[in-house]
């Protein structure tokens, strides 16, 4: 009688363990798949109004954790896109830029993007106003 009970207990525990492991594996795979399909989201912060001829900094970040990341910052004034290939798991980088000043107020559409080891993010935009002299 005791043996039968003990045996049943063992079988039940085994079945339960197997079931749990299966669910765990399935969930992990789901998580991984979701993460694989996840496109990073770029973050873009910094001043929106600046003086011409002065250096300012903007921070480009990413929500992704699949580093190392590459960060792109385009100031939007035709001077070229800056790019930085990061190392490690750093999720943001600072870009400095100086806008030319003119006698008029000028606005530029700056953009930022990031890429992790799997995907590239969409552009994030920010309007930058350069004060007149």
């Amino acid at each position: 009688m005791k043996k039968k009970l003990f045996g049943s207990l063992v079988v039940s525990m085994s079945v339960f363990l197997l079931f749990s492991a299966g669910i765990y594996a399935s969930e992990t795979e789901n998580i991984e798949n979701n993460e694989l399909n996840a496109v990073p989201i770029a973050t873009f912060s910094g001043p929106t109004t600046v003086n011409g001829g002065e250096s300012n900094s903007w921070t480009v970040g990413t929500t992704s954790s699949y580093g190392p990341h590459t960060f792109y910052f385009n100031p939007g004034d035709g001077t070229g896109q800056k790019r930085l290939d990061g190392i490690g798991n750093g999720t943001s980088r600072v870009f400095s830029h100086t806008y030319r000043g003119t006698s008029n107020v000028k606005s530029y559409t700056a953009s930022a993007r990031t890429a992790d080891q799997l995907n590239i993010s969409d552009y994030v935009y920010k309007s930058i106003t350069v004060r007149a002299w």
Partner: peptide
């Protein structure tokens, strides 16, 4: 490719 330090550059698309 560099693995031990970051690299920075500018690229002009136009």
């Amino acid at each position: 490719p560099l693995e031990d330090r970051e690299i920075w550059g500018v690229i002009e698309s136009g």
